[in-house]
Nucleic acid binder design. Sequence first.
DNA 1: GTGAAAGCGCTAACAG
DNA 2: CTGTTAGCGCTTTCAC
Lengths: 370, 370
Amino acid sequence: MTTIDDVAKLAGVSKSSVSRVINGNFQYMSEEMRGKIEQAIKDLDYRPNSVAQSLKKKETKVIGLVVGDLNSFWSVALRGVQEECMRNGYGLMVSESAWDPERDLANIHMMKSKRVDGLIVSPIRQHKQVDDLLNSLDIPYIFADSTWEEIVTDQVVTNTIAGAVEAVEHLIQLGHSRIATILFTLENSVRKERLEGYKRALQKHGLPLDETIIKICKAGKGTGVEAVIELLHMPDRPTAIFSTNMHLTLDVLKGVRMAGLDVPGDISVVGYDDSEWAPLLDPPLTTVAVPAFQMGVKAASLLIQKLQNKKPRKPKKIEIMPKLMIRHSATQLNQSRKADELPVVKLSDHTLTKEKSNENHQTGANSRKA
Amino acid sequence: MTTIDDVAKLAGVSKSSVSRVINGNFQYMSEEMRGKIEQAIKDLDYRPNSVAQSLKKKETKVIGLVVGDLNSFWSVALRGVQEECMRNGYGLMVSESAWDPERDLANIHMMKSKRVDGLIVSPIRQHKQVDDLLNSLDIPYIFADSTWEEIVTDQVVTNTIAGAVEAVEHLIQLGHSRIATILFTLENSVRKERLEGYKRALQKHGLPLDETIIKICKAGKGTGVEAVIELLHMPDRPTAIFSTNMHLTLDVLKGVRMAGLDVPGDISVVGYDDSEWAPLLDPPLTTVAVPAFQMGVKAASLLIQKLQNKKPRKPKKIEIMPKLMIRHSATQLNQSRKADELPVVKLSDHTLTKEKSNENHQTGANSRKA
DNA sequence: GTGAAAGCGCTAACAG
DNA sequence: CTGTTAGCGCTTTCAC
């Protein structure tokens, strides 16, 4: 592998001079020498060994990403991180902790030992040891899409409440006033915030809050279907549903169909979370998209900015706004229909099919070249 | 940042000895010295600077992944790669080329300059310069999930044909003999192979090949819906459909519904590609899963094995077998129903809804903590 | 303007 | 068994 000495030899100069042109320090260099060196570099197709550079300069030009769960959200965010890193001449090291704080620790140590210049972390949940380690680190780091208490460093998060408000307001603007919502049990802040957004939107528009049309189900197959069917059997049936995640949304669509009703004809649906498939559903889903890619870009650029400003500023918190993707599952409330009798809910006999599939085989989405 | 000298000083020994314990070379070391050193290391919480180690040892313990398109398939595969790297003490650098061969080149150069020990590459299409660069590289590399001609290095691929055969055979075993298939235009080998598998399965079971029930549609919204409806209007309507990708499968489901028929009651459907949502569809989709995670693991372990065997073996090609996920969209052909008149296809008036949504906003799937 | 020399933190002969 | 020494490939004073 060709080294700086080879270049120096070929060009007939010292390696200091070669180093100067590599690093763009030719303010006081003769045109001639610069030309010779550049030629030699080209001839040898020389590329500096960045390990040696790093050792000397004490910076690696590599950013580390330590994420608790490399799920579909982070997979997309990762692309944003990577793109921004590349744009700025940084490499990206990736590690996943698979929900295990021990592995968070191990990964952070690994990143430190590899001397990454900065760290983007997104642990799955707060953990004292991880916290301590991070604080004892002499490497700049930021949090991304995480929800810890008392974070003392920069972070980028998405404004979940705003996304929920936007979803519900969209329904309100379409003329709906009796809007149900459906959630998984409120075990984490994201879920709570989606409910909070729902409430705020209603309040903002002077709509009453009716606890009977807030359905909270256990996470699991088909629980959403049951909830929807209950909703559809209510005497004063809601005309719209705000479904707070993709899993539930698919249940909602299924439940409505089982009841012999139509989305959006009989009931409008707005979901939360977007995916490649959302536009292909029947009907194409109106849903809140969390801009994962953009979040990744922001996280990387925030960190890089931090790496370049030596003087510490006060921790910054960047909020990414979700975006409502308006497709076809929510429409203007049909006034005439409202006056009429509501369509009758008819339940077929195969009502609540039980699922019993064996999904313990790790594969994953696959949209490749096909 | 604490160095090996600090440890040596604290333990009152030379740094060579410290280096020995770091590297586990204490065959000829007194227990006492070893103890002292290990204590000092613990006291200082010393971790070797792997940049310095790399410079000296000429190996970085980092693997580079250069992928053309970090889509949902690779996102999952990435997790497999990362996991296997971690298990073996390797770090992982990731870069994406976003369909641009120029960026493949740049990324490979970057990886080389960072001195990764080995490379997993998956360029989007064959490209002479990339090929040359790879061959001129003095870094071991393997191909993963790529389909180049004349590859002279190890590779891991999925057996697409076998997956398609399995899907169609499943239908045959359920008693179906008139099985249609639906594909996007045969622009790449993956698509061709899925068709090939379909043909082979029919042939193997002595079933006739009827070109009229092989529907090839342009990629795009709703093209699959039209194709299915044509299929359903045929006098000798097929009793099952092998749909060759997720996009088409959603169209198929929609088309059948629009025709007033039921999956799987009136027609069985087997798809290709699995996703988080496939089990949640209505009905839960029987489909071929490409084990992306497993592929990532295999790729990494193949490469690592290669890194550790210095003596070159002849290039190896590992095939990953797709797995049929049996859920509820394909069932036993109902003999009695077959004897009856086929259910009538009724088309509602909102037949082929035109899509006109604005999907140019990059977001992505999001299944996070909600 | 340019080169010589020191050294980043570590490993690996080679002595002792 | 343990320490001394010579680099790995590069950057960066500091002389010339």
